[in-house]
Design a protein around this nucleic acid. Structure first.
Lengths: 252, 252
DNA sequence: AATGGGCGTTGCACATGATGCAACGTCGGC
DNA sequence: GCCGACGTTGCATCATGTGCAACGCCCATT
C-alpha cells in the first residue's frame, strides 16, 4: 500500500539471506542506488540493519530486541511456561508451545530436557505445518472454509513415508483432530520422532495455542508415548483454565 | 532520512510495548489515522505486524523468522558453538557468547547447564553494558575516542554495591581489561553471580566477540571461578584461531 | 607512481506518491 | 433504536521520495 515502506521492508528478507552491498540491494529492489541508500540509512537509524566493516549491510541487533519483546508480550506463553516445565519434569521429554498466525505456525516456547543447547534455533523457524501435532491442533480449530483454503495453498513435502501426502488427507486429519481434541505426529516429520499434543483454549473456547511432547523412538515407543496423553491433556487444560481466568490481554 | 519509512519503523518499538489500536498508533506517531492505517497495512503485508481478533495490532511472526535468520548468519556464533558446549561440559557452568553492535552488547549464544529453560529470554535483551564481563571485553577493544564517547553516554545503574559507578571508573576498568586481555564481573550485576570472560579475535586482531563463564557464589567462590581463567582463555583462543583460519565472511 | 574502474555518496529538478481532510459504514453500548 | 467511537475510503494538495549525473574515494592493475 505504501510504496516507500514496501520497498524498505523488502530489504529485510533480502538481507536475511546474507550480507549484501548497496549495488546488490538496489538491483534486487529494482530501484536506483541512491534510493536504496536512503532506505538503508533509514533502516540503519532504527537499528534494523547493520553495516559491517566491509560496508556491506546485514540485519541488525534491534530485530532481536523486537522479537524478544514481542514474544514476552504473549500472555499465553507466560502463563503456560511453568506448566510446560512441570510437564517436562514429569515425563522428561521435549515440550513445545506453538501459536498460529497468518498462515504460519511457530513455536513460542520449548523445554528440552536432554540437550539444553541451541534452543532458540527452533523459535521463529517455519514449523512443518502439514505434519506437526501442534500445527494440526491449531489449524483444526479454524472454520471449515478457512481450513479448506489453507489446505489447498500448502505444499505437502514427504519428509518421511508417513508424512501427510496431500490436501485431502490433511483435511481428513484435521477433522479427526477437531473431533477428538488431541493430535499426534507419528514419524511424519522425522522417521524416529513421535509427538502427542493438546490444545490450549481461551475463555470463548477457541484454540489460542497448542502444546506437544516429543520423543525419539529409541527412548520410548509410540505406544508408550501415547500413554502420556492424559497427562498432556491435563496440562493443556490447566493452562486453558488459568488463561481464561486471568482476563487475557488485559494488562497495560 | 526517509520520512515515510521512518514513521513506519517507529511503529515497531511502539507495538513492542504492547498491542495498540489504530487511534493510539496515529496519536503516538503524530499523524492522521488514515496515514497510520496505510503504514500499518504495509507492515502487515510484510508480516511484521499482526492484527488480533480485537483489531488491535501487535508485532508479527515474521520478526521471529528474521531475527532467527539474522542470528544464523553470524558465522562467529556457528564456529564458537561447539567450543562453548565443550567448555560447559568441562566446567558445568553457564557459558555466554556476545557481540558488540552499534552501542549495544547482545548475547548471541548461551549454554546453560542446570536450567535449560527460557534460554532465548536473554538473547536480544540489553546486556548490562557497564558491568558484564563480555561488555567490558568488547568495549575495551574500541579506539580511545570511541570508548570515551560511549562511556559518557552510558547510564551507570548501581545494580549492586560493586557495580561500576561512573564513566571514569568504567574507562579505567576498560583500560585494565584491554591490558590484561580478560575481564571479570564479580557481583557487579547480581550480588551473588560472578563471571570470567575472554575475547575472540579475528584475523586482524580485532575483538569480534566475547565469551564468559558465569556461576553463583553458592556453587563456587569467586576465587574458584578465577581458576577457570586459563581454560576460558584457551577456549576463546581456539575459537579465534578457527574463526581466523576459515576465511571469515567468505561464503555466499 | 600513474591510471582506471568500481562503489558509495551528494545535490538537484521533477512528478510521483504520501498526506490530511471529510464523509461514510459499522459495530457496540447506554 | 439511537448515539458515539472507531476503522475505512476517495480525493485534492503538495510535500517527499525518486532517478539522474557528477563527484570523490579506495583499491587493483600495469
Amino acid at each position: 500500500m505504501s510504496q516507500t515502506v514496501d520497498r524498505a521492508l523488502s530489504i529485510l528478507p533480502l538481507l536475511a539471506q546474507g550480507p549484501a552491498d548497496l549495488g546488490q540491494v538496489a538491483e534486487r529492489l529494482g530501484v536506483h542506488k541512491s534510493t536504496a541508500l536512503r532506505l538503508l540509512r533509514t533502516l540503519h537509524e532504527h537499528g534494523l540493519v547493520y553495516r559491517q566493516q566491509d560496508q556491506r549491510y546485514r540485519l541488525g541487533a534491534r530485530l532481536f530486541a523486537l522479537a524478544q519483546e514481542a514474544v514476552e508480550n504473549l500472555d499465553v506463553r507466560e502463563i503456560a511456561h511453568n506448566h510446560l516445565v512441570e510437564l517436562n519434569e514429569q515425563c522428561g521429554h521435549t515440550v513445545h508451545l506453538a501459536v498460529y498466525e497468518e498462515n504460519e505456525v511457530l513455536y513460542i516456547d520449548k523445554v528440552e530436557s536432554r540437550y539444553p543447547v541451541r534452543m532458540y534455533s527452533r523459535i521463529g523457524k517455519p514449523v512443518a505445518i502439514t505434519v506437526a501435532a501442534v500445527a494440526k491442533l491449531l489449524l483444526a480449530d479454524l472454520t471449515e472454509p478457512e481450513r479448506r483454503a489453507i489446505a489447498e495453498k500448502l505444499d505437502y513435502p514427504m519428509y518421511t513415508s508417513r508424512s501427510v501426502p496431500n490436501a485431502g488427507a490433511f483435511l481428513r486429519e484435521l477433522a479427526v483432530v477437531r473431533e477428538q481434541g488431541w493430535a499426534t505426529d507419528l514419524g511424519g516429520h522425522e522417521e524416529s520422532i513421535n509427538c502427542v499434543g493438546a490444545p490450549v483454549r481461551g475463555a470463548d473456547g477457541r484454540v489460542v495455542a497448542a502444546m506437544s511432547v516429543s520423543a525419539p523412538n529409541v527412548v520410548v515407543t509410540a505406544e508408550e508415548l501415547l500413554t502420556l496423553l492424559p497427562l498432556v491433556r491435563r496440562t493443556a487444560d490447566a493452562i486453558s483454565r488459568e488463561y481464561s481466568g486471568s482476563t487475557p490481554t488485559e494488562k497495560a
